[in-house]
Design a binder for these strands. Structure first.
Length: 269
DNA sequence: CGCCAGGGGAGCT
DNA sequence: AGCTCCCCTGGC
């Protein structure tokens, strides 16, 4: 276990921002994070964060996962002082970070996210992990499941995915899993592309539209210029930016600002 | 009980 | 670009 002092980091806000559907709050200040086949517990009081892992794991994986080398304070300071709404949103979501998550997990998660709400998305992901993932036991004896691989999901029956509560999204997950498992779609290739090319490739996947492609670009590929527009963001933009969001002004960091707005709309509107 | 929305997208016209 | 339908659970 290692303790770190982290600025602009709040694990509860990150949890509530709904980027990661395999994160849960297990105590007042304790959180559990599953990523790829890893398991982590975090306890946070103020800026003091206990990561229940070795320093090596922290340095080689979690530091990157939580984007801890980026100065989010700088992004917040770049916000136009006349933009009261955005300043307020960034202030409320001061501890949010854009996670760098696994691409396959994000593809499946956001295929499932459409016309769905966050608690239900969590349940769906949990269902497919328990059914198609691998059972593991953490160092402290907690049973958890890894995220199912493309080939594990490609072998599923559509009916069984529906039984996991995916509904009509089952066919999207199944079809995409097959294409990735077959090698027809090469995820590693997409990982090396810039934002416009990666998005264009992702749009070719069955069930992936503008919004889902942007979520994958932002939360997996870490293209911070991606700005996913969902129903909440749409409403906020119509209300606060009738002439459009000032993308040029914030070029390269719009994704971070999107998360501030999303979080603000969800919990403070 | 009905109605509606919840981090959309495909398949039509 | 605009429509309809896809599914289904929870809230009112």
């Amino acid at each position: 276990m290692e303790t770190y002092i982290l600025k602009d980091f709040d694990i509860q806000q990150i949890h509530r921002s709904g980027q990661c559907f395999r994160m849960e709050q297990t105590g007042e200040d304790i959180f559990r994070v599953l990523a790829k086949d890893r398991y982590l517990e975090i306890a946070q009081t103020g800026e003091e964060c206990c990561f229940f892992c070795t320093e090596e794991e922290f340095e080689s994986f979690w530091k990157q996962y939580f984007d801890l080398d980026r100065d989010y304070g700088e992004v917040k300071r770049s916000i136009d002082s006349r933009d009261i709404y955005l300043r307020e949103a960034a202030q409320k979501g001061w501890g949010i970070r854009i996670l760098k998550q696994d691409m396959w997990e994000m593809i499946v998660s956001f295929l499932i996210s459409q016309q769905n709400n966050i608690p239900r998305i969590r349940k769906c992901i949990q269902n497919i992990c328990e059914k198609y993932g691998e059972k593991r036991i953490s160092d402290n004896g907690i049973i958890y499941y890894t995220f199912p691989t493309p080939s594990a999901l490609s072998g599923a029956a559509e009916e069984d995915l529906r039984a996991c509560n995916l509904g009509y999204r089952s066919k999207y997950v199944l079809e995409t899993a097959k294409r990735v498992a077959d090698g027809e779609v090469d995820l590693e290739e997409i990982e090396d592309m810039d934002y416009p090319d990666a998005k264009q490739e992702l749009l070719k996947l069955y069930g992936v539209g503008e919004k889902v492609a942007d979520c994958i670009c932002l939360f997996a590929l870490h293209h911070l210029e991606a700005f996913p527009v969902d129903t909440h963001i749409r409403q906020a933009l119509d209300k606060h930016y009738p002439n459009g969001f000032p993308h040029k002004k914030y070029m390269g960091n719009q994704g971070i600002l999107q998360q501030y707005i999303f979080y603000y709309e969800l919990f403070f509107r």
